[in-house]
Amino acid sequence: MVQTARVLTIGEFSRLTHLSVRTLRRYHEADLLEPAVVDQATGYRYYGVDQIPVAQVIHRLRELDVPLSDVQRILRTPDPGIRAALVAEHLQRLEGVLDRTRAAVVSLRRLLEPDPAPIHVELRSEPARTVAAVEAVVGSGDVEAWFAGAMAELEAAVGDAVTGPPGGTYDNALFEQERGHALVYLPATAPPRVGRVHPVTLPAAELAVTTHVGEHDGVEITYGALGTWVVQNAMSVAGPVREVYLVGPRDAREPAAWRTEIGWPVFRLT
């Protein structure tokens, strides 16, 4: 018969760790938290008091939605620095999810407002100009990561020769088909040709322009308001959408200060 003086039954261990008996059995089957002793005759599981901190770590990691495979890596890594890096990597992903959730809540509240504030729209004639650009065909889900890499490459290539705020153009297919041509640029005195960076001439265009205030995650609401204005004023979109990042994360820490100018190429129907 197994000696249980220094061990806890699975029920006792469950009460001490706030992990259900069913969860403890699942963790055992997954080789995540093995009992100190398993009675071969009865199959009963017994745990040591020194396993309580381990169980508590697992509990907290699972509360943060860390996958079981990653929990195993964290627990089995002897190097504290590597363990900390693994946890930090997941927390960073979790913070990104929280940021997106918060932005979605803000956008939803704006959409549910009974009387949304009217937007200011300006009709503007933009002349053709040559800029330093990076362009590619990308999927809508990859735009954020692609944009960050392209902008970093542009800033390194252009350096102090920048003559205005960064911008981008986005083909209609990117919105309609979830994949399309995207281009980001920096105005420069002499656009270089380095790596993916190369000179591009933006064609002259007639634009209906408004400014989106705040984080870019809620920009679709401003797009909708601008599109409504275009339709109501008997105009039609005639080309890729243009964005100019007047104030962004590199310019101001507070998202409330960020400003994105949205320009839709248009022509009058009447």
Rank of each mutant, 00 (worst) to 15 (best):
Q3L: 03
R6H: 08
L8C: 04
I10A: 05
G11C: 07
H18K: 07
V21R: 13
R26C: 09
R26E: 15
A30C: 06
D31A: 13
E34Y: 07
V37R: 09
V38N: 03
T42M: 01
T42A: 02
R45F: 12
A55W: 02
I58C: 00
H59F: 04
R60G: 00
D65H: 13
D65P: 02
D70K: 06
I74Q: 04
T77A: 10
P78W: 11
D79L: 06
P80A: 11
G81I: 14
G81W: 15
R83C: 03
L86I: 10
A88T: 12
H90C: 04
L94W: 07
T101H: 14
V105C: 04
R110I: 05
L111V: 11
L112T: 09
A117I: 14
I119D: 06
R124T: 13
S125F: 15
A132N: 00
V134D: 03
V138Y: 08
S140R: 15
G141F: 08
A145R: 15
A148F: 12
G149S: 06
A152T: 12
E153T: 08
E155P: 00
E155M: 10
E155G: 00
A157I: 02
A161D: 13
T163E: 09
T163W: 12
G164I: 06
P166M: 06
P166E: 08
D171G: 03
N172E: 15
N172I: 15
A173W: 10
E176P: 02
L183R: 14
V184I: 14
Y185T: 03
A190S: 12
P191A: 04
R193S: 10
G195S: 05
H198G: 00
H198R: 14
A205P: 01
T211Q: 03
I221T: 13
I221S: 06
T222F: 13
Y223C: 01
G224K: 12
W229P: 05
W229A: 00
P240A: 05
P240D: 11
E254Q: 08
I262C: 02
